[in-house]
Computed example of a mutant assay.
Amino acid sequence: MTTYTARATRDNDRYWLVHIPELGHYTQARTVSEIETMARDLIVTLKGLEPDAVDLEVDIQLPGTAQEHLERVETLRTQEAEARRAAAAEARAAAAELKRAGLSLRDIGKLLGVSFQRASQLTSDV
């Protein structure tokens, strides 16, 4: 199976220009979601292949520093997920310690800022 590359750049304010360098041909797409479909269609039409016989890598060239912003978004989302996991572990540890200290589920919930039902879930293993 041959791998093709679809390089998409914003042509004007209306279309994405999609270049297939292995073929030296171009096509257009109106939206990002159409880029792969249009590139694949061009390849199968020119090469006479079945659509599932084409391995396609899409490379979208973004304007300005947009790619840097998107990479930063991904980094921050990863950090957010890690922070949420750490916070959940700390909440479970605090709830367990408070339960062992004899506090009620309502008090534990109030101290943790959760419902007493959630406090019960957090302490179910204690």
Rank of each mutant, 00 (worst) to 15 (best):
E34P: 13
V54G: 05
E82G: 06
G113L: 04
K47F: 01
A53P: 02
R100D: 03
H69F: 15
A88E: 15
L56P: 01
A94M: 10
A89V: 01
L98D: 06
R84T: 00
L105C: 11
K110D: 14
R100L: 08
I108N: 05
S104C: 02
D41N: 00
D107N: 11
R84G: 08
L111S: 06
D59M: 15
L105K: 05
E97C: 13
T37G: 15
A94H: 03
E80M: 10
A88G: 07
R77L: 13
G102F: 09
A87Y: 09
T65V: 12
R72N: 10
V114R: 05
L111V: 13
R84H: 08
A93C: 03
A86F: 06
G48Q: 11
S33P: 12
A94L: 04
E57K: 04
R77H: 12
A95K: 05
I60A: 04
L103K: 01
V54N: 06
A83D: 03
A96D: 05
Q61F: 11
Q117N: 09
I108E: 03
L46D: 05
E34T: 04
F116L: 02
L103W: 11
F116G: 06
L46C: 07
A86R: 07
V32R: 15
A87D: 07
L112I: 00
E36D: 04
A86H: 10
M38D: 00
Q67T: 15
E80S: 01
L112M: 00
L56M: 07
A95S: 01
R100K: 09
D52L: 15
Q79I: 07
H69W: 13
F116D: 04
I60Y: 04
L49R: 01
T37Q: 11
I108P: 03
V114C: 10
R72I: 09
L103D: 05
R106F: 07
L103P: 05
S33H: 13
V73C: 11
A87W: 11
E90F: 12
E74I: 10
E68S: 15
Q79P: 08
T65W: 13
D41S: 14
I35W: 02
G64E: 08
I60P: 01
A94W: 00
V73N: 01
E97I: 13
E71W: 13
L105G: 15
L62Q: 08
A81F: 09
A89C: 00
E80T: 12
T78F: 10
F116I: 07
A93G: 07
T65Y: 15
G109Q: 01
V54W: 02
E34Q: 07
F116V: 06
E97H: 07
Q67R: 13
L46M: 00
S33A: 14
E80V: 09
L76E: 04
